[in-house]
Amino acid sequence: ASTGASRAVPLLSPAEVDRAVDGDEAVLVEGDRVGYGDRLRVLVRRTDRGPVVLAATSVTAVDDPLRLVRAALLVGLPLLLLASTAGVWLTVGRTLRPVEQLRAGAEAVTAADPSRRLPVPAAEDEVRRLAETLNGMLDRLEAGGARQRAFVADAAHELRSPLAALRTVLEVALVHPDPEGPEPTLRTASEEVLRMARLVDDLLLLARLDAGASPARGAGRAQRVDLAEVVRELVPDGVVLHLSPAPVVADPDALVRVVRNLVDNAVRHAASTVTVTVSAGEHVELLVDDDGPGIPEQERSRVFDRFHRLDSPRTRDAGGTGLGLAIVRELVAVAGGTVGVEESPAGGARLRVQLPPAPG
């Protein structure tokens, strides 16, 4: 056990050896029985051949490192926790700083200044993608707001025109009564009222379509309809027809409005001839051709905008509201189709509507 211990005195008695072997665990004994000043931890093992092997070590040699480790933990652990807390606080603060910048930027975006955008962090991470997505949403909202303001301004202008004409007619009739009677004045006033009523009806229809509602109050659900029959019943005399059976699944009222608006538009601008063609194939196709001045290629993508006017001889006359083709685009989109404009073989404009065919 030690160079200073007595080698003549046994460390354990035979009975203690037997108990230690049977118990298979270390035995604590006082070191003074062998002249050692500290308690000893003794381990006893019996070999296969019989001799007993004793190994002893000082308890102090084992306890001192444990006390040292305990003291280090008592002092170091709080310091480690404090350092870890500070590190986590700094890391979280640095991580959330871009989020706070986004919050401050979002707070700065107001209706008075819709052009402001959120700051985009330099790091290529989720926060940057979130900022870019939100800025894209703000772009769309600003564009939608601009379109809405322009639409309201155009609608007010268009409503003001028939109101001003009606007011003028009535004021003139009051100051200078027509010797032939009130019928001419009433006829003119009625025409302006009807024009204003058509404009209001078109505005209400577009508002319902924008809100995702049915094109007309009380309109039925989509059903199987032969587009050729709809055209045959609606077009006026003098329009050239080329019709083939073309069943589609759509709201009948919406189809009637689409055909009427397209044909009315073509009749107003045609020089002499309007041709309507309906055919069925991969798509059900409705073609409306006129031989008027046509639509310039650079204007074809905008001709379906609300209140859009062309800087050409093909301008909106007094018979239209400036919303007919915009309504056509919305109704065709609701039916799952597309509408476009191209040059007609007759020299004017061709409006092409494609709709999904009815199944079966």
Rank of each mutant, 00 (worst) to 15 (best):
Asp311Cys: 04
Val92Asn: 09
Leu80Cys: 13
Pro98Ile: 06
Arg7Pro: 01
Ala20Val: 01
Val284Asp: 12
Leu174Cys: 08
Thr277Asp: 13
Arg147Ala: 11
Ala211Val: 03
Asp305Val: 00
Ser115Glu: 14
Arg268Pro: 07
Arg167Tyr: 10
Leu134Cys: 15
Glu330His: 14
Ala155Phe: 13
Val75Ser: 11
Asp237Trp: 01
Val193Gly: 01
Glu183Phe: 12
Pro313Asp: 08
Gln354Gly: 00
Leu227Trp: 09
Asp38Cys: 05
Thr110Glu: 11
Pro182Lys: 06
Arg160Cys: 12
Val109Glu: 01
His269Gln: 11
Val59Gly: 10
Leu174Thr: 02
Arg39Cys: 06
Leu74Gly: 11
Leu79Ile: 03
Pro177Met: 01
Pro296Gln: 15
Asn265Arg: 11
Ala131Cys: 12
Leu323Pro: 12
Gly281Thr: 05
Pro236Asn: 02
Gly136Gln: 08
Arg128Ile: 05
Pro252Thr: 08
Arg167Glu: 02
Thr57Asn: 06
Leu255Ala: 07
Thr3Arg: 10
Ala112Leu: 11
Val235Cys: 09
Ala55Leu: 02
Leu194Ile: 00
Ala326Val: 14
Asn135Gly: 06
His157Glu: 04
Val225Met: 03
Thr315Ala: 15
Val274Ala: 06
Ala211His: 10
Gly144Lys: 10
Val334Phe: 04
Val62Met: 09
Val278Gln: 09
Ala211Pro: 05
Leu262Thr: 03
Leu194Gly: 00
Glu343Phe: 10
Gly336His: 13
Glu192Ala: 00
Arg46Ser: 04
Arg167Ser: 10
Val34His: 02
Ala20Pro: 10
Arg257Pro: 09
Pro98Gly: 00
Leu90Ile: 15
Thr277Glu: 15
Leu355Ser: 10
Asp139Met: 03
Val334Arg: 12
Gly144Ala: 08
Leu194Pro: 00
Thr60Lys: 13
Ala106Thr: 05
Pro252Asp: 03
Leu90Gly: 14
Leu96Cys: 13
Glu191Leu: 01
Arg309Cys: 05
Val341Asp: 00
Thr60Val: 06
Ala56Asn: 02
Leu331Trp: 04
Arg260Tyr: 11
Glu282His: 13
Leu170Arg: 06
Val92Gly: 07
Val169Lys: 10
Ala122Leu: 06
Asp291Asn: 14
Arg103Ser: 15
His176Leu: 14
Val21Ser: 01
Asp311Ser: 08
Leu325Met: 02
